[in-house]
Nucleic acid binder design. Structure first.
Lengths: 240, 240
DNA sequence: ACCTGAACACCGTTCAAGT
DNA sequence: ACCTGAACACCGTTCAAGT
């Protein structure tokens, strides 16, 4: 939570001589991007301004422009950082014994990421991707490369692999953008207006009123699993 | 395109006396919201400011605040206006003879709306809904009421109706947010940076390079139909 | 009743200047 | 080499003032 540090390979071991142990080592792009991720996670995207992010890093806003071309590109960088995180947790992990298991594991990795960063996931989901054939949220070239190779190894034809990639992305986008949206509201609310509907207004909708209980039941987790099952069955037909 | 007018019931017939045929009748909320829809459609959300919208209406920005509490609520209103459009085209239309046909027709109506307003659909899809159990993009109370009643009439149980509503919304969100995103880019591009990937960078990804042709094939339309078919089959099992 | 002018606190971004 | 101060052109929003 406090610091995303670790025994990383650029911090402690080989401090360049002459670079005194300053209280604040100079900025660099990665540090800015990670600070931005942290900032959005805790304060929400709408609060992120260049000036506030600078302050968060103990620096004036103008200093950021030496490492980042502008706010839009900063947000692109935030998306990349988060996707890299997905790549590492998912591709480093052990092998799967079947394509079904493989899809399950990838789906859950993306879901975990979406729930860990509910305020960033909308960015991953809706920012224009680097190429028109990339499908958010599965938008990292490395990731797609490995995913397609993975499917190939499980015996999918090239055409089938692409179809699977697309329907997988569509499924994750729909399911997780909704679920992340509900989490977003539970933390600090960006906007409180209209958050709930007046009871008297509701009475104009008898069916909704009658079904209030069923509608309120959350159940996102099992819903995700069921839809994933459905997708896998559809893919199985496609493969035969 | 130019004017969303028609023989509407507040324009010509009963002009209040004393209200001279001024070149610009006074503002009203609906006029502002419709102007905002038009503005986003042609210029994109990021260009919409209170000041520019005022100018578009021949008025200073401050005048808008008499009819709209602020920018956020203006955007909420834009979403509502667009959803009302959906309600009218979809619920006024004739009856369907089967629930399959009913779902098909509703799905295509939402798709048409998304493709007509590709720059507004992301708002419909991602703005927090009025209640946590509403699922964007199917977020209008009237619409949900009629949809649930429709399913009920086709013999779905209350629980099943809710499950169908949810998976239907998830499906539409994933499929159409992606498709709308591609249309958005084809019109005036908000941002051109990184729009396409350098060819040399691509060569680091052999599988992607090899599958370039399959990946580039658009085919959103048939993809939508296939996924819709799949959903309907899953719903059929659920119903039995 | 409806709109405007002026003002406030804030943006993103540029650029010459400081150390 | 790295950061800052001052400035520019813009925001959303408030409020007293105009007609």
């Amino acid at each position: 939570m406090a610091e995303t540090q670790g025994p990383d390979a650029d911090a402690g071991s080989d401090v360049p001589v002459g670079m005194a142990p300053a209280l604040r080592r100079p900025l660099d792009q990665m540090r800015i991007l990670r600070a931005a991720v942290e900032f959005i996670d805790t304060n929400g995207l709408s609060k992120l301004t260049m000036r506030r992010l600078g302050a968060h890093l103990g620096v004036e806003a103008m200093a950021l422009y030496r490492y980042v071309p502008g706010r839009e590109q900063l947000l692109d960088g935030v998306v990349e950082v988060v996707m890299d995180q997905l790549y590492e947790t998912t591709m480093a992990g052990g092998f799967s014994t079947s394509w079904q298991e493989y899809l399950q594991m990838q789906a859950h990795a993306v879901r975990t990421l979406a729930l860990e960063h509910p305020r960033i996931f909308p960015l991953v989901a809706t920012r224009p991707a680097a190429a028109p054939w990339l499908r958010p949220p599965l938008r990292s070239l490395r990731w797609v490369e490995d995913f397609l190779r993975g499917l190939r190894e499980y015996g999918f034809s090239p055409v089938a692999s692409v179809v699977v990639y697309r329907s997988f992305a569509t499924f994750l986008l729909g399911a997780l953008l909704l679920e992340a949206g509900t989490l977003e509201d539970l933390t600090i609310t960006d906007r409180v207006n209209l958050a709930f509907i007046e009871t008297d207004e509701l009475s104009a909708y008898p069916i909704i009123t009658e079904m209030a209980e069923q509608l309120k039941d959350g159940g996102y987790a099992t819903e995700f699993e069921d839809a994933l099952e459905g997708l896998i069955e559809r893919v199985a037909e496609l493969r035969s």
